[in-house]
Write a protein that binds this DNA or RNA. Sequence first.
RNA 1: GCCGAGGUGGCGGAAUUGGUAGACGCGCUAGCUUCAGGUGCUAGUGACCGCAAGGUCGUGGAGGUUCAAGUCCUCUCCUCGGCACCA
Length: 859
Amino acid sequence: MQASYNPKLIEAEVQQGWNEQQKFQAKEDPAREKYYCLSMLPYPSGTLHIGHVRNYSIGDVISRFQRMQGKNVLQPMGWDAFGLPAENAAIKHAVPPAQWTRENIKQMREQLQQLGFALDWSREFATCDPDYYRWEQLMFTRLMKKGLVYNKQAEVNWDPVDQTVLANEQVIDGRGWRSGALVERREIPQWFLKITDYADELLDGLDHLPDWPEAVKTMQRNWIGRSHGAELRFQVADSDTCLEVYTTRPDTLMGATYMAVAAQHPLALEAARDNPEIAAFIEQCRHTGTAQADLDKAEKLGLDTGSKAVHPLTGELIPIWIANFVLMAYGTGAVMSVPAHDERDHAFASKYKLPIKPVVQPADGSELMADEPFIGSGVTINSGEFDGLSSAEAAAAIVARLAQQGDGRATTQYRLRDWGVSRQRYWGCPIPVIYCATCGAVPVPEEQLPVVLPEDVEFSGVVSPLKSDPSWRQTQCPQCGGAAERETDTFDTFMESSWYYARYCCPGAADMLDERADYWLPVNQYIGGIEHAIMHLLYFRFYHKLLRDCGMVHSDEPATRLLCQGMVVAETYFRKHDDGSTSWYSPTEVDVHTDGDGKRQARLLEDDQPVLIGAIEKMSKSRNNGVNPQDLVERYGADTVRLFVLFAAPPEQSLEWSDSGVEGAWRFLRRIWSGIHQHLQAGTPTQLDVAALNAEQRELRRKLHDTIAKVSDDMQRRYTFNTAIAALMELSNHLQRFDDDSAAGLAVTREAWLALIQMLHPVTPHLCTHLWPQLGGTGDIEQAGWPQVDAAARVREAIIVVIQINGKVRGKLELAPGLDQAATLAAARADQNVQRYLSDVTIRKIIHVPDKLLNLVVG
RNA sequence: GCCGAGGUGGCGGAAUUGGUAGACGCGCUAGCUUCAGGUGCUAGUGACCGCAAGGUCGUGGAGGUUCAAGUCCUCUCCUCGGCACCA
């Protein structure tokens, strides 16, 4: 064995061994328990960043830990290859999106391989492969036939200068990012998947996912937003039309003092015909982006249409307003406004001096605040015959009355909207639909799939090559054979990431999936960023149910356990220049020192002059605070990088990058190496005889077996890899301090080093694979399994019990375990410092937590 | 604006079920080792008072519950994630 640790050498050697054995190629084996560990597939943006390294290191620890438990583990990898950045790169560098994407994949694959993840590369694919997306197209045509797909008009952000549709992130302060033109909302026909048909199942299914984070389930519940309320009808005065509204608070109907409709509502458009002021207001409303946050934050504006609605209970006429915060796409595009009991209605009514009529008061009889809405439930007032009822009773009574009149009914509504899957983009999966003048929208027949996206194209960034190329577009109608045109929109890229996990199970299958999916699914452990908590993870669950209802999978949920890791952030360094500009420096160009007063100072290495330390932010190009994992791997080796990202923070928290922290990880691995080197030099151990150990040797064994218990729990149940590593560091510190070269001492040390290497193996597999045979470990470290706890070794002869007086610690006593209250009290009374607090007082109360604490309340 | 997280030494973090706050690592200080050091080793390191024994304070802020609160409750401030076309 070499005296010093050389990761470059051993990592290459160990990886070569894995490749030769095809060690991580998973094979279906019904005789073995399977374990499917899946990390979210990366978008091939160019190079790997630390966020990827973190995600895949977590997945790899879990995978390798499960392999050591004897499971048949599948850990695949692929590429989420369609998407907007490829189009942006094409515009910037004049390179076709396909070429840019495939070059990035090549580079990132090499980087992943260097990190030594236990991935089954034989199952790899990119979602832009026609062999992948053809099945997605097939699925879509099947869903069309099942009635789960429909086409309707929906709004997009329209850039009137570039004549193109913009993504929300391309709209900056209401203007197109490239043209600077004011963006308009425009309606165009788009395809939708009926996710709302599955709303109840998606909601109720969350109750059967005990191993998903509560935060994710809560966010999904709120997103689906099932509410029970009523659909009500208001007659429009002097007209034969009606306003349909939905409300969750029919008990407050008597307090409705005005109606509000969306700017695109037919009633608003009608009012605009002979009123230029209204027409101008509607035009103004078109210039907000489609993003919900923008709409919510925009000033609440409204205008009276002049029309009146008839209150269905009182017959009173109430005004109908147009309001910019009422959405046409959501619900019926109209709401009844009860300013006394709704915050937004109250603000709007106050602004436009509309009447406010309280109809509910708190059940405890407390006074209503004059200037604030009361949004809770209570008891009805000012409601005529409905007075004096609880909110629930009033709601039921009012809905019953309206139903009798034919003006309303109880309904359930969802906040969730159907999934719009059309994108007016080139670099995506073509939507397999043909438009025929006689037959309408016809799904592309199965035998004509896939509809292949042409890859060798010139892409200007304005018009999709699909739309500009008539030879691709023009085709024949599959039904009547007449001239027809292809759909030129492509799918939302969430479509590809909604079923990739299932395709990994069946590479090369002659259908979308085959029986191999039943062996591997559901995913045992899914790992990805918290930013996917709602949309991706909801579509992922939805698609699984679609696959199930098409008979392709036989479970209700795609993944049983979910881990959401936090972001990777880093400190920023900058200088302000005289011209007002700012230069951002990479952490690698800066040296940070702490002076004697604990103040941190940063200097630029290049000129040795100070730079300012900025905020800690998500790693990004604009702040230049990213760190390239490849440089780190070259300098320290993959094991050090993996160790650091797992040690620096628990997986769910954001991880702060630290160069010196990496140094610490590197030092730890070197100490392991030299410690084992010294141990091997010291001599040959005899067979371990636990009955013949001295006190120090027993103490080391106790530490070892405590550590095995802790690390096993941290890795399997808690997923706190940082504390598992800390425990291994403690054990290693003990081992280095333990200076006993006797045969028995060496035997205890050998046992500890072997177990340490086994437990560290999921984290730093190269180092541990290499050291295992050096320590005399037999066979393959992975097949040797996980170290077992020897309960007898953990028994303590003495434990520390804390003595408190009035809740303050006054003594710590080393006592035999299992003492009762009286014996513990006697021991406490014997302690000098405790005695000082017990003279001249009476003990009023004694709290005894056996083997932990004795609290004496005195006075 | 709405929904969801988070806030603990100079720094990253630990404290798993309400029971010793600060494990482990970084940084810093001192000493030793080395031809040398951006090496290695040893010791110390929350703040304040004290020669020491020991004491007081201390988990974003303000209240509360409890023998006991980082942990539970109420209010509040700040940071981050998502908000349906970034992925």
